[in-house]
Amino acid sequence: MTTPKLAIRGVHKSFGDTVVLRGVDLDVAAGEVITLIGASGSGKSTLLRCANLLEPIDDGEILLDGFDIAEPGLDPDPIRRRIGMIFQSFNLFPHMSVVDNVAIGPRKVLGVARTTAREDAREMLVRLGLEARVDAYPDQLSGGQQQRVAIARSLAMNPEVMLLDEITSALDPELVGEVLDVVRSLKRDGMTLLFATHEMAFARDISDRVCFLHEGAILESGPPSEVFENPSHERTRQFLDRVIDAGRL
């Protein structure tokens, strides 16, 4: 068996008295696309934040290429540059132009010269269909454009894994498509993706594997056809029924 790209082993996390993750196990192979589904508060976002070391875990291991990155006392910065993260609320830097948002990572973290970094950023933005907006500021863009810039900013660091945290939840419905198209192209390019989402139709379409999180643990996981059409757990069925009622599947 090959070493998984990212492996989450027995991860526990509490905020004060609130237990958010109670022993999550998940292996993500290189090039695999895994979606995390589940109700709000089931721990999807926290799991992604833990995987990017934005939240320290209470117990367990997070292995990147078999190396425990959650080891206490480890410098998180060299690890984070290998893992990209996209946030629900985009979190672009409002005081920088689009091209500088994308160039700042390579410039500051990888020490790329300013002009080179900006040229690379421009290229990346062209690839994502944003060539007309390179000199705009984030507040002049639509939500869909902002999220695509955020993806470009993350891609500029050449990450090995990308964590997508409900990246379409803050978007108007008509803008969701353009962002999901980018996710599709990431999959085509062989990117390893861990994707928390409420877009069930898209999850079914793109995932190699779907994981259903319930109360801080993975209750069910498998190929989308299995999880969506023939869930083995009552809880999964209930969740999917509610999603169908809400017209999201």
Binding site: S89, K108, M157
Partner: peptide, 16 residues
């Protein structure tokens, strides 16, 4: 705080 999270997730140090 999300601005800090975005910067740190790119691998920027606290000082950067």
């Amino acid at each position: 705080e999300s601005q800090r999270a975005a910067a740190r997730s790119l691998g920027m140090s606290p000082r950067q």
